[in-house]
Structure formats: structure tokens, C-alpha cells
Design a binder for these strands. Sequence first.
RNA 1: GGAGAGGUGGCAGAGUGGUUGAAUGCGGCGGUCUUGAAAACCGUUAUCCCGUUCUGCGGGAUCGUGAGUUCAAAUCUCACCCUCUCCGCCA
Length: 424
Amino acid sequence: MLDIKFIRENPEKIKQTLHAKKAQVDLVRLLDLDQHRRNLLVKIDELRAKQNAANDEISRMIKEKKDSKEKIAAMKEISKQVDVLEPQIKECEAKLETLLLGIPNVAHESVPVGGVEKNKVVRSWKEAKAFDFVVKDHIQLAEWLDIIDFKRGAKISGANFMLYKNEGARLERALFNFMLDVHTREHGYREVFPPYLVNTASMTGTGQLPKMKDDMYRVEGEDLYLIPTAEVPITNIFRDEILKEEDLPIYYTGYTACFRKEAGSYGKETRGLIRVHQFDKVELVKFVKPEDSYAELETLVANAEKILQLLELPYRVIELATGDLSFAAAKCYDLEVYAPGVKQWLEVSSCSNFEDFQARRCQIRYKGKNMKKPNYLHTLNGSGLALARTFVAILENYQTSAGDVVIPKVLRPFMGGKEKISRT
RNA sequence: GGAGAGGUGGCAGAGUGGUUGAAUGCGGCGGUCUUGAAAACCGUUAUCCCGUUCUGCGGGAUCGUGAGUUCAAAUCUCACCCUCUCCGCCA
């Protein structure tokens, strides 16, 4: 959510943002409601001031045993007027809130302006491996090695649900353990393991609601949604709290399963593990002081990159253009790993600075000794990494001509020292 | 799921219709004292919104959340949420 004062003072900037992020919000109406709200507030505050003064007076009259009937009768009138105004203000504020929640975050000035075509490759790491045999894709490999059962996954739950088996299940487990270890031991993150189901307030806080409502699974009859990312529960850890300045920055990492409907995204491009309804992910979340957030974004990306480097997978870092930024992000880098089997660059991480956009929705503030008032902090998050696609990249990059998959060195301690996965 | 108790400021804990944003204690911050520290003493100590002649001033709101009764609600009524205790169920 943006500051209404900022919107009031920068309507042009908001118009550009709405256009860039393709959001439909009636800005004129929003500004009207804002003005209307303030007019109503002036009126009701005056009436309430009268009530408060009269309350003191009536109280004194009762104590002095004077007749207060007339005063009380007069106050009944005022009270009626308040009763008329109050619902008007509530209605106005509710409408304003609805519009406000629909306004996306403004991109940082450093972000390239334009659509996907303006996305910029800022760096790449490691050349794509040259194979001297015909490469298989991860679906062929996974079926050949009997480490993922696509058919039974679909039987149990539906299309695009996976049943990991044998060394596949173990590789998955190895991956998130490895990632958590790196982030907690080497990058200074504290580990959390949050709930997978969260309420409306949490989903609204990070910006999934109201916009992404149809992309999420909801529990029937309960105010609970399955998380599409651990960003939601982890960022909401501090919802409605004021933190101490000296406690910042705070870094959290956590593993969760993630659930997404991915409606309407079937087809050849999304076969196998590339776009699934349930996947595992290790998330990185930072709570930082505003002046540090862009430096923190760079280290966040570096922390995520480190995982790909340790896994020795070729990847590139993309800086997203304004039109490709998510609703809540002010700036975002995607990490794409190369998968030679499907011959695609796969997005395995998205690292964003939300500035105070989520903090304002969540009411997460901080206060220092020399600060008169609490201030919104900045939140950032990034995948470190999303597992399903990383799994794809490992299978496809580490395959041998025999159809085996060599286990990346850093994962072997998590795989009982095993060096490769072979058909049994 | 059933029965009961309860949700008040950073914490503890008063307050059951009328100058109560809220006693008191602890903690925090500033100061006096001290060579320094402790103790003692004095002061201070929430958040949000609106207006403004804007390093200030004026007003309003907030005692789990929402609705209601009333001239007036932390205090009364209802609903919901959460916590605790006991019972049941259960990985």
C-alpha cells in the first residue's frame, strides 16, 4: 500500500505505475474519496469535541446536583448528527481502502522502463555445458531413474502434482537442507518454519490479496489460504509490531511447500516439473532500515546466487523492467538457471525490494532512540531457491550418456555420500 | 468438540457507566547526587488520524475485533477472534 499523501501529491507517478503494471484503479475517484473523507472528519471531530465538552459539564452538574436535563436533551441532537456521519465515514474509508489496496507499488528510479523486452541480463555465471550425446529432458530422466512418478501424482491429487520417489525424494530433501544450511551458517539468516495456512490479514499484508485471489487455494469454510510462498507467513511474523532500530536488520530463512493454482497454464511449455501446483522452496526474507534496502537487495541476490554457484549450475541474473515487476515490488532481480534438456532458462529465484509497500500494509514499523515517531521499515524477499526447477536443472545438467545423474558434490553429504543416481 | 476463566500502556496489575489515555509497581529514557557505579530523589515515558498562521498549536480516535444500548462505555448487551484450565479426541 502506498501512502495516501504520496498519492495525493504525485498523481502523475501513480498514473504511470498503473499503466506500467496494468492495474485498473480509478485514481480520480480515489482522490475524491480522500478529499471527502477529510471533509467528513473535520465535521465529526467538531461534533465530538462538543460532546466531550458537554460530558465534562454534565458530569460536573450531576456532582453539584444541578439540573442537567436541558443539556442532555441538547446533546441528544448532537449525538444524532454523529450517528448520521459515522456510517458515512466508515463507508467512505472502506471504499478508499479498497482502491488503495489495488494500487501497485511504484518502481524504483533505477528500474528499466518498459515491458518484458526491456528486461536486462545483468550478469551470467558459468557457460552452458556442452554435451557429446543427445540430452534427455528431466521427465525422461526422472521416469527412467524412477525418481518421480508423474502418473501416480496425478492419480493421488491431479495434474501437475508430483510423487517424488526413492533417490528423487531424497534429493529433494537434500536440496532444502543444503540451502538452509548455507543461508543460516554462511549468510547470517535465522531459521524459521512457519505455518502453511494463513489468514486473510496475512495475505493482504504481503499483497497477494486482493489481486491474486484466484491463484490461491482456499480452505472451505475457514479464513485460511494455502501459502503460495513462505514470503507470506515470514513477512507477517512482525505484522502490527514496532521493532527496535538496533534490532535491524533481521534476516529470516525458511523452508515451506508452496501451493499455486496456476490456472490456465497447461501445455508443452509447462510439462513436468516446470510449473506445478505444489513445490518446495527455501525463502529469504529481510527486514531492514529504508536507507539500507537497496544495498540489502544486492546481498540478497548474491545469497541466492551462491546456491547456484555451489551447485555449479549455469545461470543468469535478470533485472526486471517496470512492466514485468510484480504488484508489490519496487525492484526485482530474477535468477534463471539453464536447463539443457528442455532448452529453457528457468526462473528459480525472484529477489525483490518492496520498500515500505508491504510494511505499510502489514503495519511493520521500527523506532530508534533519536526518532520522534516510528517509521515503516523496508521488506525484501527472494527465493533461495525454488526447488522443483532447481531439481530439473540438476537432472538435466548432470546427466550422463548412460542416463545416470551425477549428484553435485555439495549435496553428497546429504545423500549418504552417494555420487550418482542410477537406474535400479 | 464440550465446560469454565480471562483478554487494559514495554511488562506486571488497578479500574464495573460521568473531567480515565487510563492509578500503582517494574522496566526504559533524561537529570540531581557521586572520582565512577549502585542506591536515593526529581522529571519523562503509547499509537493513529484531521486541521493549522506548522521546528509550534488545536481537535479527534484507540483498553482483543466488530456491532448495539446511552446525553455519556475500558466499564452494560450481543457476535466473533485469541489465551489459559479441565474433559473428550488425536499424529
